[in-house]
Design a protein around this nucleic acid. Structure first.
Lengths: 218, 218
DNA sequence: AATCGTATTTGGACATGCCTAAAAATACAT
DNA sequence: ATGTATTTTTAGGCATGTCCAAATACGATT
């Protein structure tokens, strides 16, 4: 299993290509910043190896073993992210790049020991769930802050955009996972929100709210 | 800097190719388990990039920047080995393979934090010195146990052979770095040694003694 | 059902890093 | 000094993974 193959499987997984949902050549190319023709080549190769199902002009989806492989890479990526933040004091906006490299290290013992060192975390620093050794993970009940109604309350559980810029913005405004947010009001003309967080009122744009996952409080 | 380039530089360093000492194509090929013709190709490429000096039919040696790069890879390899043993409870005979992969991770911050986490160790689990960030390291005063005279005493400081087999042998016989060894006698016909270690007498073959570094005690 | 525009695939090409087989240079004999 | 053995290089090829440009298929519209 080469690094390129692993990256393709991971991307297909992130684009929802599990359980026979088809992902288009174009979508993969865009996500990976490569060309559709390269994707076609790799699709053939992965299909050959039984890691994806591929139908010409239709798209690809992960096979059972393909999904298993993808999950193990995602697991490694997210565990390394936790390690970088928890053990080495990286901030959550600088872990992605390094984890992209570390996720390809081949040693089951290594990742299991890291898992144990960290106390078997269930979520990574961005709130994404970490698959267990045997590929099980819980999709947490969540929705975008932008989908909530005024008057409702939620706990911040994850981010959709994991770009450094967005994460730094959250840091600067003291918005962190675990914080409780109440929606006070939504402006009609630009969809911006007034929220209460940590006892303070503040205004955030629709774009921000559209990239923050919250868990609705009853 | 590709992974292959890094591996070549590391190998040249280990074969003593610093400070204008020439290393032969064949030696590199053998060490890397590849063919001499491949080495020639890479030698040209590295010379092109200014990382080695290369004269046809003579051999290669590291340039200043080549040495710097090699040292940074060796530093990373050895720090990761310490991390695996100290933090993740790997045994010293199973760290090499994984460290071979980890040494290629590109993140200065990562390795510096690992260094700090470990308390800036000076030696790796096999007793090899760890270069500092700016490439400085101390070659410890040492000699092979097989070169010592009967009646002399030394402290075990390193291993020459780092193969899993040899290291497991040492474990099994309770020989560890830091132990004091006294040479009682050397057999004439097979060069085997009788030594006192941890208050016990034992016999070891010449081959074993030829792979153990000790520091002579005055 | 024909057409237009987009998505996808094909064919040909390139860089990297490796290989084999043959040629060239060097080293070592006598 | 000359021939032989060894080392090293060259030449040509192969696999991986990428790209571009051209050809092809799809699907939405009419």
């Amino acid at each position: 299993m080469t690094r390129a193959e692993e990256n393709y499987l991971k991307t297909i997984f992130h684009l929802g290509g599990s359980s026979s949902h088809l992902v288009s050549t174009n979508a993969i190319a865009e996500q990976m910043e490569t060309k559709p023709s390269s994707v076609t080549d790799m699709a053939k190769k992965l299909a050959e190896k039984g890691l994806v199902e591929y139908t010409k002009y239709q798209g690809v989806s992960l096979s059972k073993t393909g999904l298993k492989t993808a999950l193990s890479i995602v697991r490694k990526h997210r565990l390394w992210e936790v390690f970088l933040v928890e053990t080495l004091d990286f901030s959550w906006d600088e872990v992605h790049e390094v984890a992209e490299q570390l996720e390809h290290i081949k040693s089951e013992k290594l990742i299991d020991r890291i898992d144990s060192l960290l106390g078997y975390p269930k979520f990574d620093p961005h709130g994404d769930p970490i698959p267990s050794k045997d590929g099980v993970f819980f999709e947490r009940e969540q929705q975008l802050l932008s989908e909530m109604k005024p008057g409702s309350t939620g706990v911040c559980v994850g981010v959709k955009d994991t770009s450094s810029n967005f994460l730094k913005f959250l840091d600067k405004n003291k918005i962190a996972l675990g914080d409780t947010i109440e929606i006070v009001e939504i402006e009609d003309f630009d969809q911006s929100l007034t929220i209460t967080i940590n006892g303070q009122n503040m205004s955030i744009s629709h774009q921000i709210a559209n990239n923050l996952y919250v868990k609705k409080q009853e």
